[in-house]
């Protein structure tokens, strides 16, 4: 029998987005697109989240918040940057209060481009994230077999 994937919980944070991607992310949770089909639910609690979904570029106000949310999430975790602003800074790149994409602050695993990113693209990204989460879990499990101690999985930041 094949192994079952975990039902990942998703944490959404708006770093400095224009709302366009945010309402599309929310749209994914409502009847038309319904990502809950994949077992994904939106949570407000970083301690229980597996996927961190971030929209918008980072500024000096939100950079510490993003870092903190990331460090509070348990391993394994996947970071999903949704929208072109979260990927590179997008149209706001030259603004004085934008540092650039999310990867200037934390490591990003999956990039979903688009302005605003379409729900289909976001769902595609989330499904990829679920797969990546399984791989990361497998890696941690293999490591655990080799060593006695599994190492800090809670609050660790690489």
């Amino acid at each position: 029998m094949g192994k079952l994937s975990k039902s990942p919980w998703l944490l959404h944070y708006d770093a400095s987005s224009c709302n366009g991607c945010d309402i599309e992310v929310l749209d994914c949770l409502t009847p038309r697109y319904d990502v809950e089909r994949f077992g994904v639910i939106n949570t407000g609690d970083p301690f229980q989240a597996d996927i961190l979904l971030i929209t918008g570029g980072v500024n000096s106000q939100t950079a510490p918040v993003v870092k903190q949310l990331y460090s509070q999430m348990p391993e394994p975790k996947v970071v999903l940057a949704v929208g072109i602003c979260a990927c590179t800074g997008g149209v706001f790149k030259e603004c004085y209060n934008i540092r650039g994409g999310i990867d200037t602050v934390i490591p990003v695993d999956i990039y979903v481009p688009g302005c605003a990113a379409r729900p289909e693209a976001i769902i595609d990204g989330v499904v990829k994230a679920v797969k990546l989460l399984d791989e990361k879990k497998e890696k941690i499990r293999a490591q655990k077999g080799r060593e006695e101690q599994p190492g800090g999985t809670y609050g660790s930041e690489k």
């Binding site: 400095s16 500024n59 106000q61 939100t62 149209v91 706001f92 030259e94 603004c95 209060n97 934008i98």
Partner: peptide
């Protein structure tokens, strides 16, 4: 406030008035 401040009004100095519609 200030979490989503980007400074878009300043961009008129970098983009011409037709491009600025997109901003």
């Amino acid at each position: 406030i200030g979490f989503i401040h980007r400074g878009l009004e300043k961009l008129v100095e970098k983009r011409d008035f037709k491009q600025y519609v997109y901003i």
